[in-house]
Computed example of a mutant assay.
Amino acid sequence: MPGETGHHSVGVGSLLTILRDGQARTRGELVQLTGLARSTVSQRLDALMHHRWVVATEDAISSGGRPAAAFAFNESVRVVLSADLGATHARLAVIDLGMTVLVERAVELPIDQGPEATLGWLVTAFQDLLEQAGRDLAQVCGAGVGLPGPVEHTTGQPVNPPIMPGWDGFPVPAWLGERIGAPVLVDNDVNIMALGEHWAARPEVDHMIFIKIGTGIGCGIISDRRLHRGARGAAGDVGHIRLASSDVLCRCGNVGCVEAVAGGAAMAATLRAEGVDARGSRDVVALMRAGDTRAAQLIRQAGREIGGVMASIVNFFNPSAIVLGGDIAEAGEHVLAGVREVIYSRSLPLATQHLSIRASELGDRAGVIGAAVMVVEHVLAPDTIDRTVAG
């Protein structure tokens, strides 16, 4: 067809991607944007409407005459099940394709009770949440799960996770997928938090580092707007970078790891040794909020230690934003002040000139939003949509 050369790449899935920015568009606008013939655009819209990915709305801003039909992405057609599993607590949510959280629940859930017990509980909890949201399993297009340990993303299997006995090599996607009847994607908890936070900051941040300061310390890397996982999914394991000033033994077997000094578990242990009742990272923050100066000092010092490690990473990676999340980041200015102080004094001026260092916008929700982003990007990828429509 004349005028269509070079535009065959704009398939049904690519047309959906254009509409996913939330703006309704008329046939005419889509013809202009894609360079496709009007008949081809109509054909592709019909296919998307047949699968209910797209709905017709009346375009209010019609130029006199009868209103032109406009087409918009149907955000509520499917839902995603999302789980952010930490060492001791979990957050679950049912989220639509526009990232609106329909229902959510936070619970205490020890990850060390093993995969079958944890995931079995998850299946039941997901069914309860779907019921609350007035949805059912038939509307679920996928599930996203974040785990507190290294995950081989291609298989979704945990790899030697230090705090997850019994999980090594467990086929999480297959086990869970069989029970909910939808594709399951699994990643490390910090990676999904980075995805969620990047989605919230979108689309202007190309290079971002997300640091989770909780029981341990980890980091998710967004490079060129994509998550960088590394060769074996171990990219961003900054918690085990050695601090020259420390000889504290870490749970990994090495000494002087930043996590063993500045992680929530380490700070709680320091306070316990001083006779204060602090079991974990949340207690440390609660004490600081209640005016405990020792807890506040520890948190600021932890920020400085983490800032020291981050300064090297800033020089190496040159991010445009560093975002702090996790329980300890809830301590806000104390931890941010410590991190900023060291990064700005030790990093190269060129690397810090336009660098933003801030607390997470999504807070506790970063993980469940990120797990949903991971699933939606997979399910709505142009080639996946092309296959779904063709099939």
Rank of each mutant, 00 (worst) to 15 (best):
Gly35Ala: 06
Ser76Gly: 14
Ile221Ala: 10
Gly325Tyr: 11
Gly86Glu: 08
Leu380Gly: 01
Gly325Leu: 13
Ile209Ser: 09
Val248Glu: 15
Gly307Tyr: 05
Asp292Gln: 06
Trp167Tyr: 00
Leu176Thr: 06
Leu348Gln: 13
Ala87Gln: 08
Asp59Trp: 11
Val376Tyr: 00
Val31Glu: 01
Arg346Asp: 10
Leu97Met: 15
Asp277Met: 09
Ile95Tyr: 05
Trp199Gln: 13
His89Gly: 15
Val140Thr: 06
Gly338Ile: 02
Gln157Trp: 07
Gly177Pro: 10
Asp96Tyr: 00
Leu176Cys: 03
Ala286Asp: 10
Gln127Leu: 14
Ala234Asp: 12
Arg38Thr: 09
Gly280Gln: 03
Gly216Leu: 05
Gln43Lys: 12
Ala359Cys: 14
Gly134Ser: 00
Cys257Val: 06
Gln301Trp: 02
Gly181Cys: 11
Ala106His: 13
Ser246Asn: 03
Gly236Cys: 11
Pro150Ile: 14
Asp168Ser: 13
Gly86Leu: 08
Ala268Pro: 04
Arg27Phe: 01
Ala83Met: 11
Ala83Arg: 04
Leu16Met: 07
Gly120Gln: 08
His51Val: 11
Arg229His: 07
Gly156Val: 07
Ser356Ala: 15
Ala117Cys: 08
Ala351Val: 09
Gly338Phe: 04
Glu377Lys: 07
Thr57Cys: 13
Val314Phe: 04
Gly156His: 01
Arg38Gly: 04
Ser245His: 13
Arg27Trp: 01
Phe71Gly: 01
Glu131Asp: 14
Cys141Gly: 06
Glu333Val: 12
Ala138Trp: 01
Gly218Pro: 00
Thr155Tyr: 09
Arg135Cys: 09
Arg251Phe: 06
Ala143Pro: 03
Gly256Val: 04
Val379Asp: 10
Asp283Pro: 02
Ala296Tyr: 00
Val55Phe: 12
Asp84Leu: 02
Leu45Pro: 04
Pro110Glu: 12
Pro150Val: 14
Arg294Ile: 00
Asp247His: 12
Gly114Cys: 03
Gly144Ala: 04
Arg78Asn: 13
Arg91Leu: 15
Arg20Glu: 14
Ile328Ala: 12
Val123Lys: 05
Trp175Gln: 03
Pro173Asn: 07
Val373Ser: 08
Ala262Asn: 01
Ala174Pro: 00
Asp59Ser: 14
Gly291Trp: 02
Ser245Thr: 15
Thr17His: 14
Gly264Tyr: 03
Ile369Ala: 02
Ser9Thr: 12
Met267Phe: 04
Arg20Asp: 09
Met99Asn: 09
Phe126His: 05
Leu185Pro: 09
Gly233Ile: 11
Val101His: 01
Glu197Leu: 07
Gly114Pro: 00
Gly98Trp: 05
Ile209Gln: 12
Gly263Thr: 08
Asn191Arg: 13
Glu341Lys: 10
Leu81Arg: 02
Ile192Lys: 01
Arg251Cys: 10
Gly391Ser: 10
Gly181Leu: 01
Trp199Arg: 13
Ala381Met: 07
Glu58Pro: 10
Thr155Asp: 09
Leu176Asp: 06
Val258Ser: 01
Gly307Ala: 08
His89Tyr: 09
His153Arg: 15
His354Asn: 14
Gly166His: 00
Leu97Ala: 05
Ser360Ala: 14
Leu16Asn: 06
Cys250Glu: 02
Pro2Val: 08
Gly181Glu: 03
Gly22Met: 05
Ile217Asp: 01
Arg358Leu: 12
Cys252Gln: 02
Leu97Val: 04
Ile328Arg: 10
Pro173Arg: 07
Ala138Arg: 08
Pro183Tyr: 07
Leu271Thr: 00
Leu137Lys: 02
Gln23Arg: 15
Gly156Trp: 04
Gly65Leu: 14
His207Ser: 11
